[in-house]
Design a protein around this nucleic acid. Structure first.
Lengths: 221, 221
DNA sequence: TTTGGTTTTTGATCTAGGTCAAAGAAAGTC
DNA sequence: GACTTTCTTTGACCTAGATCAAAAACCAAA
């Protein structure tokens, strides 16, 4: 399967590994398709392996008893998820669900631990992935607790500007309601802040496209 | 140094390693003392190694431009911190400061990476540590965004009950102001919630000692 | 045990943002 | 193209919790 190998080669987790090892890895993983909105796993389930997005988009989230949800991550192609139980035991700490029709690779725990044990650079790659994830969590907590909603939105827009390599505009890759849940607010509030920022001449909103009118002042929110 | 070796043996990170390897590790680390309230590192500094608390207590925190602080972790003896830059490169994502007079071990990056490469079970231990940290972050975000302050306090008290193995009372090991910063609130609000919970017959507060009057109802907050 | 510095508590006030309800827009379906 | 369903916006209202100010309690050192 050519496609799978390319995906693995392009992922941070498996980058820099000799080709033969990547095929060993490709050999132990199973691919599975999910329609949009499908659950991949639930918080509290035992984790017998981890996953990697091959195509599509997956969200990791927590829900409160009264149904509110907080998105922790959104992962795209090449990004692994659900690794925590593999290394720490215990069940999944959160839920995973597709945001679009997706193809997902599954890596069974035992086999993968075997590979890691035999292969220090794979171990270091995985450590790098988890370390980056910790860093992201730290800034997410910072955003959620030390900034108010406009500031969180501003820093998300700046993140998209980096990601999409544009200074003038940016395209939301998720529905606004999901963005609200990622920013820890409600879609109503988010909508109001979009219009306030437009009034203030910071941005201009056209559906999913956000034109950056004043990037400097936007950064200062 | 007998003491150092005992500490390493008791820590999660180095548990299960053969004694000789622990002495190798003990050989590469340097110990340093800090008075209470001393900075160990700042967000944005390059990380040339990581740390482990030998004695005392260390907080990891972020600050906002206007001086508010959010505590991410509080670490005690045997717990490593500041590992993110070791594996992911880039500077420290947050600040570290002692909460009490402390002794801290420092492990230089290059040497430690060498040990990990040569030693799969050390790598797996480190993966377990980071995975546990991710799990904690996930529940911290859940607490901060999906629960209100009384709920966060309740879950912290339950955490202390586990930790201290008591059903009837619990002793705060940090000042209430620091607890407020950990729970993402102000000391004023925290104080008010302590008294409200007392009125409601859930707890009784005597300085740093919290008597658990109704553990069941407390859990439901 | 007095003094000066932290913590902690209490009171009064203010606001960001949540919630509920309903109208409008978009988008996919037959 | 009409229809249903999902997404987004707008309006009205309300509350958790922040902030400011000041008193009280606690603590450590002299």
């Amino acid at each position: 399967m050519q496609k799978k190998d390319e995906l693995l080669a392009g992922s941070l987790l498996f980058s820099g590994l000799p080709a033969e090892q990547r095929s060993e890895i490709a050999a132990i993983c199973v691919s599975k398709r999910y329609p949009k909105g499908a659950a991949i796993f639930f918080e509290g389930e035992p984790g017998i392996g981890f996953y990697m997005v091959a195509s599509g988009k997956v969200k990791i989230f927590k829900t409160s008893f009264d149904g509110k949800e907080q998105i922790l991550h959104i992962f795209g192609p090449g990004e692994p998820f659900g690794e925590v139980p593999v290394f720490h035991g215990n069940p999944f700490p959160a839920n995973a669900e597709t945001l679009a029709e997706s193809e997902v690779l599954f890596f069974p725990r035992a086999e993968f631990v075997g590979l890691i044990t035999a292969n220090p650079s794979l171990a270091l790659n995985m450590l790098a992935v988890l370390a980056m994830r910790l860093r992201r969590f730290a800034t997410q907590i910072e955003n959620l607790t030390l900034k108010e909603v406009p500031g969180r939105l501003a820093s998300y827009l700046h993140y998209l500007m980096e990601e999409q390599q544009r200074q003038d505009k940016v395209v939301l890759d998720i529905p606004k309601g999901q963005l609200a849940s990622l920013l820890g607010t409600s879609s109503e509030t988010l909508s109001r802040i979009f219009s306030k920022m437009t009034e203030e001449g910071l941005i201009r909103v056209e559906g999913k496209t956000i034109f950056i009118v004043d990037g400097e002042r936007l950064k200062e929110r």
